[in-house]
Amino acid sequence: MGRIILENIKLFGYHGCMPEEKYIGANYIINIEIELDFYNASITDDLSKTINYVHLYSIVKKEMSINSKLIENVAQRIIQKINNKFNDLIKYSKIKLCKENPPLHSNVDRVCVVLEYFK
């Protein structure tokens, strides 16, 4: 088993329940972790025997461009799309999605949600 990890994907989005969040937007940091058996890819140097991380990134970017009230919803959509697309390969998947400087009227760097799926 091995893991593909995309760390600190930085994207801008318009997610939130407050009206101003739909216009101002916020910065987000996303981490994706996928566990799979990529032994064959590692010995054959064949991209078709693993998950191309470019495809993972494109799923994240596309789903982040769709506005949602809750970051929980965004995280669920991202991980579900990844799991559906690569269902035969994935043994475990995890997403951590963080909103930078959330509007909490307090000094909070970020608020995050984490979803994990085990097969």
Rank of each mutant, 00 (worst) to 15 (best):
A75L: 07
A26R: 08
I59T: 03
E20P: 00
K49E: 10
E63R: 13
G13F: 01
I29W: 02
D46N: 13
N84E: 13
H105D: 03
E35Y: 04
A41N: 03
V54C: 09
N40L: 06
V74P: 00
N84G: 12
K62R: 10
Y39N: 05
V74E: 01
I82D: 00
E116Y: 09
K94G: 11
E63A: 10
S48M: 02
L97W: 02
N84W: 03
L104I: 05
P103T: 09
Q80G: 12
E63P: 00
F12I: 11
N8M: 05
I82Q: 02
K119G: 13
G16D: 01
N101H: 11
Y117V: 11
Y23S: 14
K94C: 12
V74L: 06
I4P: 00
V54E: 08
I71Y: 01
L104P: 00
I71R: 02
S58N: 14
I59N: 05
K85V: 02
N31C: 12
S68H: 11
H15S: 08
R77C: 12
S68Y: 04
I82Y: 01
I78Q: 03
L115K: 14
D88T: 14
E21Q: 13
Y28G: 11
Y117H: 14
T44L: 07
G25E: 01
I51V: 15
E35M: 12
Y57S: 05
I5Q: 13
H15A: 10
I4V: 09
D45W: 04
H55D: 12
N27R: 11
A26H: 03
I59L: 08
K69T: 02
M64T: 03
V108Y: 04
V111G: 10
Y53L: 12
L104H: 01
D109H: 04
D88V: 11
P102M: 10
C112M: 04
Y14F: 13
L11K: 07
H15M: 05
L89A: 09
E21R: 13
V113Y: 01
V114T: 14
L6S: 07
E7K: 15
E35A: 15
I29L: 11
I90T: 02
K69N: 10
S58V: 03
G13P: 00
I32E: 04
C112G: 07
K10S: 15
I78L: 06
H55Q: 10
H105A: 14
I43S: 07
N87Y: 14
G25N: 06
N101K: 15
I43L: 08
E116F: 11
S65I: 02
K96I: 14
F12C: 14
K69L: 12
V114A: 13
F12P: 01
N67C: 09
S106A: 15
I51Y: 11
F12A: 15
S65D: 08
Y39E: 01
Y39R: 06
E35T: 10
I5W: 07
G16P: 00
I30L: 05
K85H: 04
E63I: 03
E63M: 09
S93H: 13
L89V: 02
I82V: 06
